[in-house]
Computed example of a mutant assay.
Amino acid sequence: MSTLKALLFDVDGTLADTERDGHRPAFNMAFEAAGLDWNWDEALYGELLAVTGGKERIRFYLEKFNTDFEKPDNFDDFVKGLHASKTLFYTQLMAEGKIPLRPGVEALINEARAEGMRMAVVTTTTPQNVTALLENTLGPDSESWFEVIAAGDIVPAKKPAPDIYVWALEKMNLTAADAIAFEDSLNGILSSVAADLKTIITINGYTKDDDFSSADLLLDQMGDASNPFTVLAGDAQGHTFLNLDLVKKVHAA
Rank of each mutant, 00 (worst) to 15 (best):
233 A>L: 09
63 E>L: 03
137 T>Y: 09
201 I>W: 08
150 A>D: 08
145 W>I: 12
216 D>L: 06
239 H>I: 04
13 G>W: 07
220 D>L: 06
124 T>G: 06
177 A>E: 07
184 D>E: 05
187 N>I: 07
193 V>H: 13
153 D>V: 10
222 M>S: 03
142 S>Y: 04
148 V>Y: 11
205 G>L: 05
212 F>S: 00
82 L>F: 04
139 G>P: 04
144 S>Y: 14
186 L>T: 12
252 A>H: 14
82 L>C: 00
96 E>G: 15
233 A>Q: 08
129 N>R: 07
56 E>A: 12
141 D>I: 14
3 T>V: 15
216 D>S: 07
13 G>E: 01
243 N>E: 06
59 R>S: 10
124 T>C: 12
61 Y>Q: 00
12 D>C: 01
113 R>C: 15
59 R>C: 06
213 S>E: 11
116 G>V: 12
95 A>W: 14
84 A>Q: 07
109 I>F: 02
38 W>K: 03
149 I>P: 01
57 R>T: 02
35 G>C: 00
71 K>W: 00
93 L>T: 09
201 I>F: 08
243 N>L: 00
56 E>N: 15
214 S>N: 11
78 F>L: 01
11 V>F: 13
236 A>F: 11
180 I>P: 05
164 I>K: 06
249 K>M: 02
46 G>W: 04
164 I>Y: 05
114 A>N: 12
68 D>C: 01
203 I>T: 15
195 A>V: 12
253 A>N: 14
